[in-house]
Design a protein around this nucleic acid. Structure first.
Lengths: 209, 209
DNA sequence: TTATATTATAGACTATAGTCTAAGACCGCG
DNA sequence: CGCGGTCTTAGACTATAGTCTATAATATAA
């Protein structure tokens, strides 16, 4: 199955549309860029655009998916010996930093809007995302180390912990400029993790239960 | 400042648009109803529509605001003697029931989309909402009763507890049909409240700290 | 190599949310 | 009563996301 010339061309067209769109979005904001503008500046066409992307949102969603390689990189910087609780806190910190400073608020807003529109088949619900695999891994490790009880429902806890992210990120947009993402994120997950450790903490976690 | 005939007329037009729109939304779904269709079926016009509502979303947002009178009613059914923790759990249960069975998922979806679009001046961020006043009231009461420590940051805790609602409701849409709102809501807030009581619980709460 | 099938792209077209302006109806005031 | 001003509404108009169809270029198979 060798790559034909035509496929290469198509890939280049897609890349050109992608780069141009991102550049325009960053310069003028998602809402102030039209698809016509993107295709014109890419010397391309509507047909090409919608052949490569499902919608205008598709550009930002594709960019957003890069976050998974960030996660993979980032977890490697987390010290092996840190406790489960510390690891989760570090993950939140790193993630929020990446979202705010690399991807940006406008991109995240559109991704969250898509999550509400494509009510099925959206990225959040895909349990194979790196993020979910990483959190599941941390939970499994914590169980092995006796930090969490053996009978924790791993999948459920994964959804719950990542829901803390989604809730905080939603509020980041809903609450406007005054919202301090890092601070809010940390304070919130700290409380939640207290609850988690109180409920599911194993013998090695200092849990009194 | 007596109500003029003209104001009455306008109010009737608005009401007609409102009722017709809701009827159509419920019948066909928000995305499958056009504003043209609404105004035609209301024997009205675009000008009238946009004179009364800020956008197509405005209809559902206005309907959503009715939830505040529901909250006011509902809290009166919560037993005075219940603990802070129990009160919060009951509030969540009642709320989710109302949202799922009275307002409906489609309405909630559009309200949550609006929260992401009108990044300032949206309903969530308005701290005078009944919901927020009620939660603040519960927290204050819990402090008075010694269930929470005296130095709890009331406003912060209010935002955090209600963020549990927002996170869960976001997931309700993002995770499609398999998501059991009541179950997810309860399990999530239980963990969070464990964290809250562990951190901020007073002498009367059985907190060991 | 030629004929047939496939596919990427161009761009006209559609659907629809929201804007804008004019006009008519009603209001309050003299 | 009548006049100037104001509010409500009608509906044409604009902007724009997304669809659809035709075409040309390329791939494939004989």
């Amino acid at each position: 199955m060798t790559t034909t010339n035509r496929q290469t061309q198509a890939e280049q067209t897609k890349q050109r549309l992608f780069d141009t769109a991102l550049e325009l979005f960053n310069k003028k904001g998602f809402d102030n860029v039209s698809v016509d503008e993107i295709v014109k500046q890419s010397n391309s066409s509507k047909g090409a655009f919608y052949g490569h992307f499902k919608s205008k949102y598709g550009i930002f969603i594709e960019k957003f998916k890069e976050i998974d390689s960030f996660y993979e990189e980032f977890v490697r910087t987390i010290p092996e010996e840190a406790s489960f609780n510390e690891k989760i806190l570090l993950l939140f910190e790193g993630q929020m930093d990446y979202l705010a400073n690399i991807l940006g608020k406008d991109l995240m807003r559109t991704v969250y809007i898509s999550g509400l529109n494509d009510t099925d088949e959206n990225f959040f619900a895909n349990s194979e995302r790196s993020l979910y695999r990483i959190v599941r891994g941390m939970i499994k490790e914590a169980i092995e180390r006796g930090e969490l009880q053996k009978d924790v429902d791993i999948q459920r806890l994964t959804w719950q912990i990542t829901r803390c992210m989604r809730g905080t990120l939603y509020d980041w947009h809903a609450f406007g400029e005054t919202f301090d993402l890092q601070k809010e994120s940390r304070e919130y997950i700290e409380v939640f993790m207290d609850g988690v450790m109180g409920r599911y903490g194993g013998e090695r976690s200092g849990n009194r239960k």
